[in-house]
Amino acid sequence: MKLRRRSRSGRLAVEPADPVAAKPPVPTSLKIGAAILGIFVVVAAFAPLIATHDPAFQDLTDKLASPSAEHWLGTDQLGRDAFSRLVYAARTDLIVGFLAALFPLILGTTLGAIAGFFGGWVDTVISRVADAVQSFPVYVFLIALVFVLGTGVMPILVAFTAIAWVPYTRLIRTEILRAKGLDYVAAAVVAGLPHRRILFRHVLPNSVRQTVVYFMSDVILATVTLATLSFLGLGLPVEQPEWGRMISEGRTFLRNQWWLSTVPGLVIVALGMGYALIGDGLAQRLRGDG
């Protein structure tokens, strides 16, 4: 622990030893993962430029065509260009999958911070609710929730947030309780730093990396689950291009047009591996063995 005197104020500022100060080299997995994710972001952002056709345009005279120079991945059962739908679906899956993991992170972190910081009955209530949610088969509840809330992006985000916030709450709460017992935080309290400042300057930076690593595995799960809900006929509106729905629609034609289901699945796996590599790389940095 380093104690450093701030120049003029004369107040003691206490800083934890900074683990990133040494700046270990960026792990290869992080680089590859970021590159994969980067490609997906570019494709989603420039979908209109990359797509070769209007993803919604139906040509019923040219249904279930095989891949060709005109239709790179052939056409689906309504004669829509599969490649263009795949490209546009990147927008849906990337954004909704990401938000479906981000919202629980925000809710969970906030609740965890409140529980850890204030303690007492607030902590008891939050922790008990967290225990209860954890004990339920939440993904089965997810189906029931989406069933009741209806299809669309908002119901999906609400349902995901309702079921996936618990691990973040636990993580932050534990981190705060641990930090409360640490010398430097005790010193900060003695030095009269306001609580908010202790939270933002000392506790959150320490838990951010762990949270991010967890988030990376959660975003994979959210993306896969989003596709799964679409596959089950829940989830997003039918007309919106989405990988899970493409797989589901291609299912009837598995025998002869196998690519219709195969390719969107491979794309999901590629995106998932991108996230996983980023998570792996961050975890390596977290352990400090870059």
């Binding site: 595995s217 994979i220 896969v224 596709a227 799964t228 596959f231 899970g244 797989i247 589901s248 299912r251 598995l254 289901s261 969107p264 699945g265 999901i268 796996v269 995106l271 998932g272 591996m273 996230y275 996983a276 792996d280």
Partner: peptide, 13 residues
């Protein structure tokens, strides 16, 4: 990790 990223319905298909 690879298997974790695979949507199960797709693996099934």
């Amino acid at each position: 990790t690879f298997f974790l990223t695979m949507p199960p319905f797709w693996v099934g298909l």
